[in-house]
Amino acid sequence: MHKKLLFISISLITIYGKAQNSDVEKNITGVQLGLFGLDLYNETKLANKTTLRAEASLFPAIWGGGLYAEKGFAFYPALTVQPKYYYNIEQRAEKGKNIKNNAGNYFGLQIRYIPNWFVISNTKNLSLSNQINFIPTYGLRRNFAENFNYEVKAGFGYGTTFGNNFNESGAVLDLSIKVGYDF
């Protein structure tokens, strides 16, 4: 009887311990930088494999060459909310791979708002149209060193401008390669 009880106890502890280790992190806050922007983000656990990422971003834009009267650059803000489903985090944990800070592959749905709040630019009187984008994404997130990460994602979705006399809708492509630090 004692051997059975001991075996069941050890089995439950092993199963419970494995389930604990294969969940996404409860809360991650960090910053990421790439060619296509700077993000300050927080990722909060919703379920065992699902998180909600909220981010404030600053995106770059450049123009110049023969088609433009002048060369220029701009930085503009964006706010994004993205549920993410880490479909392989459990398999990574079972194989002994690093899953710290949600290192895994995911599917997500970005809902990005680009407001006409401000534009930092070398061109005077530059403004944006308010935009909202809905972009299904596929990505992967990995760690290196203690708190550093890199994330690669790609998505293709729908976007629209609003709030002015000229409204336009169409396809939106999102590509991102960023290196970051988790606090």
Rank of each mutant, 00 (worst) to 15 (best):
R53V: 14
A56Y: 05
T51P: 07
N48M: 10
N48P: 12
G37Y: 07
K45Y: 04
L52C: 03
A56G: 03
P60Y: 03
G34V: 00
L38S: 07
T44S: 12
L58Q: 03
S57V: 00
T51G: 08
T44H: 10
I62S: 15
L33E: 04
F59N: 08
E55D: 06
A47V: 09
N42I: 04
A61W: 11
E43T: 04
L52R: 00
A61S: 11
L46Q: 12
Y41W: 00
L52Y: 07
L46C: 14
S57D: 12
L38P: 13
E43R: 01
L40M: 13
G34Q: 02
R53W: 13
S57A: 00
R53H: 10
I62D: 10
N42E: 07
Y41P: 00
K49S: 04
F36N: 09
L35Y: 09
K45P: 06
D39C: 04
A56H: 01
T51I: 02
A61T: 07
T51L: 14
L52T: 00
L52S: 01
S57Y: 06
L58P: 01
L40A: 15
L33G: 02
T50N: 07
I62W: 15
L46P: 07
G37M: 04
D39E: 03
F36E: 13
I62H: 06
I62L: 12
T50G: 04
A54S: 14
A56R: 01
E55C: 01
L38K: 05
S57G: 10
L58S: 03
L40I: 14
R53G: 04
G34T: 06
T50V: 06
A61N: 10
L33R: 08
A56S: 08
A61I: 08
F36Y: 06
K49P: 05
A61Y: 11
L38E: 06
K49N: 06
F36P: 08
N48K: 09
Y41M: 00
A56W: 09
L33S: 05
A47E: 11
R53N: 06
K45R: 05
L40Y: 02
D39I: 08
F36L: 12
L33I: 13
A61P: 05
L46A: 10
I62M: 11
T44Y: 07
L33N: 08
A56I: 11
A56C: 02
N42H: 15
P60A: 01
E55L: 08
T44I: 14
L52I: 01
E55N: 12
G37C: 11
T44L: 11
F59A: 15
K49C: 14
T51F: 05
A47S: 03
G37T: 10
T51D: 13
E55K: 08
T51N: 06
G37I: 09
L40W: 09
L35V: 15
N48T: 07
